[in-house]
Amino acid sequence: MVRYKKSEEKRKQILHAAFQALAAAGYDAVTLQTIADHAGVSKGVVHYYFASKEAVLVELLEWLTGKISARETAAVREQTTAAGKLAAYIDSAFAGPSKNRSFYRVYLDFLARASRIEAYKDINRRFYDSCAAISAEVLTLGQQEGIFVRELSPETTAPLIRALIDGCLIQWLMTGSDEDHTAFRDSCHAAVLKLLSI
């Protein structure tokens, strides 16, 4: 049991190092050696846990999107009203300048390849299914509470909510300004409310 735990900890250390390497240098510049350097281990250790750079990156994308989905779902579940759930969802997505910058630098690299690499496409689809489930929960509750437009379909509206969130975060990333992060979050919240509200 102890050996298994150490093995899992080492895998997580390598995944975290891969994330740091991607955030710092970008997809094309990352190799097993740069991942090993960031992890403070030999290239052989990385190769022991992962057959290739691609294997590391597939697991990294799965780990990252799973972590974000879990965090956003937990934040929404703590709230009891549609307004509270929506605010919690957007606040959770706007995790902070440093976290958002690192994640979106890495995530945009993956998205650029998702149309050609089936594994990335599948992971991304599962991530957006999770996002759609959160958005649909918020919308449906708001419709029951009478604060969101009843005619809106969760199937077609839920993806738009995430599109607004990601769009605002990508636009913020392009500004390069930490000071603007809160303003983009607030604008995103206002835009989603405008989309949903009566």
Rank of each mutant, 00 (worst) to 15 (best):
Q144S: 13
I134L: 06
T80R: 11
A21F: 05
G84L: 11
R162Q: 14
A88F: 08
K99C: 04
V138M: 03
Y120Q: 11
E179C: 00
I134V: 15
N124S: 11
L193K: 12
K194I: 04
L15C: 07
V149R: 13
L32Y: 00
E151G: 13
L193R: 15
K121L: 12
L139T: 11
T34P: 06
S98I: 10
K53M: 09
L32R: 09
T31M: 08
I68P: 00
Q143N: 07
D122K: 15
L64Y: 02
S177L: 04
E62L: 10
N100V: 12
E78I: 08
A25W: 08
F103D: 01
I117K: 13
F127D: 07
D129G: 09
L111N: 10
T182R: 12
Q143V: 08
A87P: 00
A190Y: 12
A23K: 01
Y27N: 01
S102R: 13
E9S: 10
Q143F: 04
E72D: 07
A191K: 02
Y27K: 05
I198F: 02
G26Y: 07
F19Q: 11
R3M: 13
H47Y: 12
Y89Q: 14
R71T: 14
D122V: 15
K53N: 06
E8M: 13
S7T: 10
A18N: 06
E72W: 00
D37I: 06
E78T: 14
P159I: 14
E118N: 07
D91K: 06
F50H: 02
A87N: 08
V138S: 05
L193W: 10
K194E: 13
F94G: 01
K43R: 15
G176Q: 10
A191W: 00
C188Y: 04
K6W: 07
M1N: 12
F148I: 03
V149W: 03
L108C: 10
Q171K: 10
S52V: 11
Q13G: 01
R125F: 03
E137H: 12
A55N: 10
V138R: 00
L60I: 13
S98D: 15
A114S: 14
R105A: 02
D28W: 02
L108K: 02
E59H: 12
F184A: 02
H181W: 00
L164Q: 04
E179I: 14
T73L: 10
Q143L: 05
L86Y: 06
V192E: 04
V138L: 02
A82P: 09
F184I: 05
F184R: 00
T175K: 08
F110I: 08
K6V: 11
L61R: 14
F127M: 09
G167F: 01
E78L: 15
Y4H: 11
R116C: 04
I35G: 03
D91M: 07
A39D: 05
L152A: 06
F184S: 06
D180W: 02
I165Y: 00
V45I: 15
I117P: 01
E8G: 01
L173K: 08
S115M: 05
A25T: 10
R77I: 13
I123Y: 02
Y120R: 11
Y49E: 06
E78N: 12
L139F: 03
A83Y: 07
A158T: 10
S42R: 00
E54G: 03
R162A: 09
T156H: 11
V58Q: 04
V56K: 07
R185K: 14
A163N: 11
P154Y: 05
R11T: 12
